[in-house]
């Protein structure tokens, strides 16, 4: 690796990690007032407050929400991406535009409008959240899987067929393993959509589904409990970071 590349990598890492430094400091600060460069008193009050506010169950709910969205949006995105990349989908451009529309429309407006619809259809609130967030995650999974299928060499599956694999075996033994890095990436993005959502969870969930972002927002809207906010924020950041590393490892293995 050249020197320039090293410097660039270090700068990028700093750009991503530096904002976390005050968070980490705040999370461990029992008292930190204005002129001091570092907290005057260290402690675990922030952590205690966060746990008292329900950080544990909220993390669990966020995790479940992220996982459900990933489980729903990844196969749907894979199928849509495959269709768009392999077959001649009539007006494929329009189909793609429709799938991308959740990215373009303001989520607040969409959530408000659909909330009314879901209420009239008597869809239970958590199910409504799952459904809407899956739709919101579809653009990411579809675009990613479309690119993956476009680059995928179907020769591998043809070879598998002539070696005696059924169409189904060719998909499960050859196509999916070859696409594993892309699938992991798509699932990660879909998980993030569910994990980090605020607007849809708040509006459609009607306050029943208290996830980590909701907790962070409510804690941050009051003053004086910076340590608790910091702990909550860190617990929102760390799981995706761990997942990202895991996905990166899967991707590396796929390329090795």
């Amino acid at each position: 690796m050249g020197l320039t590349a090293r410097v660039a990598r270090a700068a990028l890492a700093a750009w991503l990690l530096l904002p976390l430094v005050p968070l980490v400091l705040w999370a461990a600060a029992d008292r930190w007032t204005a002129p001091a460069v570092l907290p005057q008193a260290w402690g675990t009050a922030g952590l205690r407050d966060a746990v008292d506010a329900g950080a544990g169950p909220a993390s669990l709910r966020s995790t479940v929400l992220g996982l459900v969205v990933a489980v729903l949006a990844t196969p749907l995105g894979a199928m849509a991406g495959r269709a768009l990349a392999t077959y001649r989908v009539p007006v494929g451009g329009a189909v793609l535009a429709a799938l991308l529309s959740p990215l373009v429309l303001p989520p607040f407006a969409v959530a408000l409008g659909l909330d009314v619809l879901l209420l009239r259809l008597r869809v239970p609130e958590p199910v409504g959240v799952f459904l809407l967030l899956t739709v919101a995650a579809l653009p990411y999974t579809t675009v990613l899987m479309r690119a993956a299928y476009a680059a995928h060499d179907t020769g591998f599956e043809e070879e598998a067929r002539t070696l005696g694999a059924t169409a189904r075996q060719a998909v499960f033994h050859v196509q999916l393993p070859l696409l594993a890095p892309a699938l992991a990436g798509a699932a990660f993005l879909a998980f993030l959509v569910g994990w980090s959502d605020y607007v849809v969870t708040l509006l459609v969930g009607g306050g029943q589904l208290v996830t980590l972002p909701l907790l962070v927002a409510s804690a941050a809207s009051t003053v004086g409990n910076e340590a608790q906010v910091a702990v909550l924020s860190l617990s929102s950041v760390l799981p995706p970071l761990v997942l990202l590393v895991a996905v990166g490892l899967v991707g590396q293995r796929g390329r090795a």
Partner: peptide, 20 residues
Amino acid sequence: VPPERRGMAMVFQRPLLFPH
């Protein structure tokens, strides 16, 4: 008859070894 039941095996110009 589908390819897998024809009793034939093919070698292409590209080796197409399963990378995983």
